Simulated assay, not measured.
Amino acid sequence: MSPLSRRAFASGLPLGLLGGGALGGGFIGSGLAPILGATPGLAATPAAPASVTPLAQIRIGRFTVTALTDGFADMPYTFFPGRTPAEVEQAAVVQHTARPSGVRFLFNQYLVEDGARRILIDAGPAGSIGQTGALPQALGALGLQRDQIDAVIVTHMHQDHMGGLIVGGQKTFPKAELYVDRRDVKHWTDPAKANGAPDYLQTSFRMADQLVRLYPKLQAIDGEREIARGVSIVDLTGHTPGHIGVRIEDGGQSLIMVSDMLFPVVHPAATDVVFLFEQDRPAAQAMRDRFFPLAASEGALIAATHMPFPGLGRIVSDRGQLRWQVADWALQD
């Protein structure tokens, strides 16, 4: 099946809002210690107790999808090749995501439940970037511990998506099956790739080695496949060699979690603007050039890791210009 299958793009039915609603500017992570070193310019800072644990739920057929967050970091305005720092900052001011040190990025995760299995999509940076480490607290607000998660899908092997799986050098989701695209496993565990990579990617390489060691039953998956009935992998390669999305579909409703296909401020309007961490920038742009117009034409309901919490919205065409529209899901029946 094509990664841009039209059946991926049905709208979801809203369920409602839990525990604190939107993430306020005062939210701080739960204070887990940094792991494996921090990215230059994105050093972890001491965390105070969280003032709110944001949770948001939406129903997709038989599934309940809960948006969680591990916290936030401010990405320097220099991290967006294709635009000057001043241009990025100006756009961030307009969108209310500007902070003194950069663009406010959230780290959203999504818990998918159908009464039989609990599947988590990504695990956050867990203190290795910015003010993060709140995912265990967010799960706790649902009455869950990490050993109650049946599976974790890692959309790609950047530190902000897998750090929560290996906090303190420990296997933190002990009973979970782990799914990662084979191309990413190959890339991020290749010593030659690590030796030639810039400093800001070294933490991801170290984490990838640790992840493979701690989760020996990790399933390195090839291409699109169903993880569970109604939960399937979508190929969105470009951001990393094995960057994937996850489609949740049931009862004529669907939601597609697109991970790092979308970044605040620059997307979806400017597909020529990439992000510093992208290894294959032409491939990332080409995927966005294909994906964004189709998502707009189909009214796809999308979940995105770094968009303002809960990261749910749609790409819409407004007088020929693509823009992000926050989903009107929160308080509807």
Rank of each mutant, 00 (worst) to 15 (best):
P3T: 08
L4S: 06
R6D: 05
A10K: 05
G16W: 14
G19T: 13
G19Q: 13
G21E: 13
I28T: 06
I28M: 07
P34F: 06
A38T: 15
A38R: 09
A43K: 10
P46R: 11
S51C: 08
P54Y: 00
A56V: 11
D70E: 08
A73P: 00
D74T: 14
D74V: 04
P76C: 12
Y77I: 12
G82P: 09
Q95N: 03
A98M: 04
A98C: 10
G102E: 05
V103A: 09
L106P: 00
G115Q: 04
I121Q: 03
A134M: 06
A134L: 13
Q137G: 11
Q137P: 03
L139C: 05
G143E: 06
I149G: 03
A151V: 08
A151Y: 04
V152T: 05
T155F: 04
H156E: 15
L165G: 03
V167H: 14
G168R: 06
Q170P: 01
T172P: 04
T172R: 12
K175E: 12
K175H: 14
V185K: 00
W188R: 01
A197Q: 04
P198S: 10
D199N: 12
Q202A: 11
T203F: 01
M207I: 06
D209P: 02
L211I: 08
L214C: 06
L214T: 01
K217I: 02
E226L: 15
V231Y: 02
V231T: 07
G238A: 07
H239C: 10
V246H: 09
G252I: 09
L255K: 01
M261T: 11
V265W: 03
V266P: 02
P268N: 07
F275A: 03
L276P: 01
A283P: 03
R290V: 05
F292G: 04
F292C: 07
L294S: 07
A295D: 10
E298W: 08
G299V: 05
A303T: 00
P310T: 08
G311F: 01
D328F: 02
